[in-house]
Computed example of a mutant assay.
Amino acid sequence: MLTASEVRKLISMPDAVAAVRAAFLDLAAGEFTQPTRLSFGGGRALVMSAYHAGSGAAVVKTLSVELERSPAILGTLVWSSADGQLVADAIEVTTLRTGAVSGVATDLLAAPDASRLTVLGAGAQAADQVRAVAAVRPLASVTVHARTSARASALISVLRKEFPAVEFAVSGTADEAVSAADVVCCATSASEPVFDAAALPENVHVNAIGSYLPSMRELPEELLASARVVVVDEVGACMEEAGEVIHAVSTGSLKRDSLVELGSALTDPPGVGGRTVFKSVGVAAQDWALARLLAQGS
């Protein structure tokens, strides 16, 4: 079994972004059989699986999620192919692939010179959001807002060692944090929107990866209603699990048929400019992409 540290040694963030991008193109091309995620106990236990027709390889991931626990996510990933089987710690795979998909979306939708990143949330997912955006854009500054300034400062102390040329700052409010951002990454467990849409610049790209239950919402309805394009990892998955998307569609402020899946957007890019949104609940093709990297490198 590959440990968390071994997973980190085998996969760099740029490689993860490239692998996840390729997987979403394959997903759009119909190469994956990917059942809807199984959720038990109100999202406290999750099972995800995917099979890739071209390679004949499959992945299954099981997770235990307790938001008050540290780490909040525990689990195991199993990769199976004609060459054998690989088992890996699922925590690092999950944070890496979640960061990587934000990197893919940011590379697609953010301005080429985007350099100011705001991160809302300072939990286990936050650091890889920064690493992923840094893999595709020339970051000059990162502003962090979290429930407590201590959590934000702790995250910054880790990232400052990795990115000594980047200017880091803690913001007291979410609205202040997003007001001058080129890219915003939301990585919270919020049940209500974490910022006001009016606080955003007119040209900004927003990634939201924290909510994965109908009861969770990070993004304001007004942003989803007014965004130039709303891209999702998978429409079906988001309509079952993304609270902000479900809410906005139910009120009529967002039309389901206006949602663009990431694989389709990569095939036919919608361009940059204005306010753009990427909402992800996570799909098994992402896990498959990183598991293949592990199998190739181990």
Rank of each mutant, 00 (worst) to 15 (best):
V249L: 11
K255Y: 04
V235Y: 06
A152N: 00
V204Y: 10
I209Q: 01
V170F: 04
L46W: 12
S157M: 12
Q129A: 15
F32M: 04
R292E: 14
G282T: 09
A248D: 08
L224N: 02
R131F: 08
P214G: 06
C238D: 09
S70R: 09
A285S: 08
L294W: 15
V144Y: 08
V87W: 10
S264G: 07
A289K: 06
A265R: 11
V272H: 06
S226A: 14
L155Q: 05
A4L: 01
G263V: 09
R69F: 08
F24G: 00
K279H: 03
A265I: 12
V183F: 13
A225R: 06
V133P: 04
A265Y: 14
G282N: 09
H145A: 00
P270W: 12
V20K: 04
S64F: 07
A57M: 05
V104G: 01
T98D: 09
G172W: 03
I209T: 08
R217P: 03
P14Q: 03
L266V: 03
S250V: 07
S153K: 10
T251R: 12
A53C: 01
A181T: 10
A140L: 10
F24C: 00
A53Y: 05
A225H: 03
M1P: 01
L109N: 09
A29R: 13
A50G: 03
A57N: 03
V93P: 00
V59Y: 00
S55Q: 03
V170M: 04
A152D: 02
R21M: 05
V249Q: 11
V229A: 02
D257K: 14
E240V: 10
L96D: 00
L96V: 13
R44M: 08
G263C: 01
